[in-house]
Design a binder for these strands. Structure first.
Lengths: 214, 214
DNA sequence: AAATTTACTGAACAGTGTTTATAAAAACAA
DNA sequence: TTGTTTTTATAAACACTGTTCAGTAAATTT
């Protein structure tokens, strides 16, 4: 049955064409200007055709959102070559911000925009896998830090949420232009110091632990 | 010239009517469903009339955004009765999250949405006053903490950005549904611990300062 | 009473996401 | 090679959206 296989392939190919066109438009023109009609024109199909491959506009951006998380995971994984988990965690912070700065639109779609979230809600099950892969990387690193004594023992969820929140806060305040009172060129330095500061919260300091523990 | 005064008053009154209707719709139906036509219908005027009082839809939401910042400032100011600046700073954190949880739509408009920001960009000058008032409250409290020895001396901008980013990160990840992997009921407790942790970064601990200073 | 200013609106423009009936093409069966 | 069925694509329409502008009616001034 080579016919079915070919059809399957063709079907997937057009789906990818739609996704590529949508991504290109999204990165160049933004979400609002990436209309179903503009995508259709780019791939030289009728707008209605797109609805044979995606349920709605949100589902298209849900797919782009997923690809963004793949890129994000790859970026964060660059830290894995670092042996020391505490240094690795610190490096993940830099990589996080590098991703946010280099791929603002993707970051925005993944962590801020409503569209990709609304797509899965109608699906029924809230499949949260793609983002979870990166979050698990963070969790595992924290656990390793605590196990190997680089970090004082504390609730994993609290540590993970604290770190994620600081990172996302900086990235999203910048991307959504809520830090315009600062010279945009010094922001990376401010963010760096903020990360360094936070790292100290978690640091296990044997010499002072008896004083700071309570 | 009582006539002119009355006309001025009437002009302002309709402007407020538009704003009230828009706010009500915004809180009930969200940004997208608050159309110019729906606002017009609510106040029983033609859609075109709205454009005699506001340049565009963004300008309407820019005004609502400003009112939100007034509420926000009032909320944060509740902390001012606390004498100790370190305790006051900690209280401001709680009040920040209370505001975000109680007025999600306002918070979203003020700190996440693009619409109100785009409004001022066309104005020319980026009048950043409304949000700055609250930010200054934070800065002043930090300065007071450092001056009175409750907080170790460090760069004010770094401290302010660190605190703002953590707060906004928690609030916006929650509001934009990026923390759905957690039981939503425990989030307030996680956030509380995250704030307590961060406070420790800044804490001036005389007994251990000689060890931690470099 | 006439002229002018101010306030308002109907209608249109150019777009949006989405659905549906219809047509064409491809695959399968006799 | 027919005829039938399934798959794939689309034109056209629906119900919206923000925004503009010519034209009208009312209020104010001369």
């Amino acid at each position: 049955m080579g016919v079915l296989a070919r059809k399957e392939r063709e079907k997937l190919e057009l789906r990818n064409q739609i996704l590529e066109a949508a991504t290109e438009l999204f990165l160049k023109e933004g979400f609002d200007k990436t209309s179903i009609r503009s995508i259709a024109e780019k791939i030289e199909y009728s707008p209605a055709t797109i609805y044979l491959y995606f349920k709605d506009k949100n589902e298209i951006f849900r797919a782009i959102h997923d690809k963004g998380f793949d890129m994000f995971f790859a970026k964060l994984s660059e830290s894995q070559k670092i042996e020391n988990p505490y240094m690795r965690l610190r490096r993940m912070g830099d990589l996080y911000l590098e991703f946010a700065f280099e791929h603002r639109e993707f970051y925005d779609l993944m962590f801020v925009m409503r569209a990709p979230i609304e797509a899965r809600n109608e699906n029924g099950n809230i499949d949260w896998v793609c983002g979870m892969r990166s979050f698990k990387l963070l969790q595992d690193t924290i656990v390793e830090c605590m196990e190997k004594g680089y970090m004082r023992k504390m609730d994993l969820d609290v540590a993970a949420v604290t770190i994620s929140s600081l990172m996302h806060g900086m990235a999203s305040l910048y991307i959504r232009e809520r830090l315009v009172m600062y010279d945009q060129n010094i922001l990376p330095y401010l963010f760096r110091d903020a990360m360094d500061n936070l790292m100290q919260v978690f640091k296990a300091n044997p010499m002072t632990s008896s004083f700071t523990e309570n």
